[in-house]
Design a protein around this nucleic acid. Sequence first.
DNA 1: ATTTAAAATTGTAATTATTACAATTGTGTA
DNA 2: TACACAATTGTAATAATTACAATTTTAAAT
Lengths: 142, 142
Amino acid sequence: MKINNEAIERLNSFGVKPSMQRLAVMTYLLKHRTHPTVEAIYLDLCSQIPTLSKTTVYNTVKLLVEQGAVAELTIDDKNLRYDSDISTHAHFKCCHCGYLCDIPVRKSTLLSVKKIGGLTVSESQLYYKGYCEKCSKLMEKI
Amino acid sequence: MKINNEAIERLNSFGVKPSMQRLAVMTYLLKHRTHPTVEAIYLDLCSQIPTLSKTTVYNTVKLLVEQGAVAELTIDDKNLRYDSDISTHAHFKCCHCGYLCDIPVRKSTLLSVKKIGGLTVSESQLYYKGYCEKCSKLMEKI
DNA sequence: ATTTAAAATTGTAATTATTACAATTGTGTA
DNA sequence: TACACAATTGTAATAATTACAATTTTAAAT
């Protein structure tokens, strides 16, 4: 996997000082829109950067999230997941097979910064849970 | 804490066979709308049921969630939280102090059962994250 | 009432994601 | 080249949750 310009630009525009590892993680997230876990990112990048430490991946995604360069999803109760798509959209997770995907949403539904009473909301997440097409059909048969 | 009728009715109407422990957990959740963790439920109920096991609390909340009698929140990356309010509403979490509260929401925003493409959505969760009133003011001073 | 089977509860051990932290390595500058 | 600082690494610790076997409780049948 080559480092792409989009990754460099993303880091720069969110004030993240680039490094080999950070660019690799950012590039990975931009390329793989699968909402990967730290484990998945780590395992895939290991072949490219054999000295990579899982701690570095943890440090990096934390930094990227803090700076707003990527989104952190808490849709799964097991692991945190990361998404380089920081535009307005929702997520669906199949509670049977774990399948996870994006769901388009009107911007008005998920406004990025607003006030609710005294609360300052900087981030909104809309999660849908249920059964994917495959698992729905499986359920009917049982 | 007395077991209340609402707890018995809730278990019955969601097909959960009642027991001392299940009623205690259900009653606790109906009374404490603080979105408690398993740990919190366990610690509070220990004085009432000294033989209570944390595993039982885990088993019970899992059962209640499966049957739809309570909602499970994944808003916090550390622990799962449980909510006996299964009506349409969103949640806010302060990412500085951890404060968690309910946010009213129009029913149309979070429809409880629908289809999106081939996906069968049985549950929607809307999470807001940011700073509570106290923490917002703290931030300004720094 | 007694026996019996099934279900619920308990306690302990295992698993796993994440964080803490100290040591090492890398980077940029004087 | 030397120095200070930041980033990375590896290991150990923490903590939430699950697995599982043993025990207790419940409910039904004799």
